[in-house]
Design a protein around this nucleic acid. Structure first.
Length: 237
DNA sequence: CGATTGATAGCGACCTGGGT
DNA sequence: ACCCAGGTCGCTATCAATCG
């Protein structure tokens, strides 16, 4: 593909098969940031771990140049917010100023790390029935299917109750093997408390893991549990 | 056939500049 | 003050085409 530079200089910019797979991922997560892109690029390069921030920025600059992504620098942790253009994903431009954007970016960060650990990632299906619940994502390993819930804001107890009831039905029906709550400190406390507080919570507690991997602002923590998500024990190859 | 070369893409390091 | 964007530089790895 030949594109014209800002200087008017013609320059070749190749869109590789890997870049197209990146666009497929962007279509799934919709909105992400430069830090998450590091992990997916690493995965698609066949590397265990992320590429450097600089490389991810360079990739974004190249994809911006060929019109496959757009970026917005909101000054938050994780770098610019990144999304695929209509050309890349067939989806209209997301509204990045909505309240839910921080949550969506956090989900993308999680997705990126699962993909780097050789999991497949897809969106959860929108539930048809009332009283069921749509998870933030589904991580599919070779033998396991985990429902992933990203929790940055504690919910009220009745809300947890109905979600746990929905998860209980789903786990019992064999629709998934486990539920993973990825939280910051305050929402992690709320989820653990809610799991103890009701019969529905206690019924599923042994199939639910709660991990504090986010900072309060929704960035994946640099060290400890956040660095390697999912944990090495859950690694699939 | 094996060696060389060029393109591509990766790395860290260093720098400047901008935004919070 | 700190984090991030994005530019250059020197270096390395890989792969495919080409040369001797």
């Amino acid at each position: 593909m030949v594109v014209r530079d800002t200087d008017g200089v013609e320059r070749r910019a190749w869109v590789t098969a890997r870049d197209e797979r990146m666009c497929e991922w962007l279509r799934i997560v919709r909105v992400t940031d430069v830090q998450a892109i590091r992990w997916v690029l690493g995965a698609l390069n066949g590397v265990d771990g992320p590429v450097s921030t600089r490389r991810a920025q360079a990739w974004c600059a190249r994809m911006d140049l060929v019109g496959l992504i757009e970026r917005a620098n909101l000054g938050g942790p994780g770098g610019s917010i990144v999304w695929g253009t209509y050309e890349a994903t067939g989806l209209s431009r997301p509204n990045i100023y909505r309240q839910t954007t921080r949550h969506e970016v956090a989900v993308a960060s999680v997705s990126a790390r699962y993909i780097n650990a050789s999991f497949a990632w897809r969106r959860d299906e929108r539930p048809a029935q009332v009283g069921s619940h749509q998870a933030d994502g589904v991580a599919i390993g070779r033998r396991t299917q985990q429902l992933i819930e990203v929790e940055l804001t504690p919910k009220r107890a009745p809300r947890y109750l109905s979600i746990f009831q929905a998860y209980r039905r789903r786990l019992d029906a064999g629709g998934a093997d486990s539920v993973t709550y990825l939280c910051n400190d305050s929402s992690g406390r709320a989820v653990r408390a809610a799991l103890r507080a009701s019969p529905a919570g206690r019924a599923i507690a042994d199939r639910v893991s709660v991990r504090d991997v986010f900072t309060d602002r929704g960035a994946v923590r640099a060290n400890s549990a956040g660095a390697r998500l999912p944990s090495s024990t859950a690694h699939e190859s």
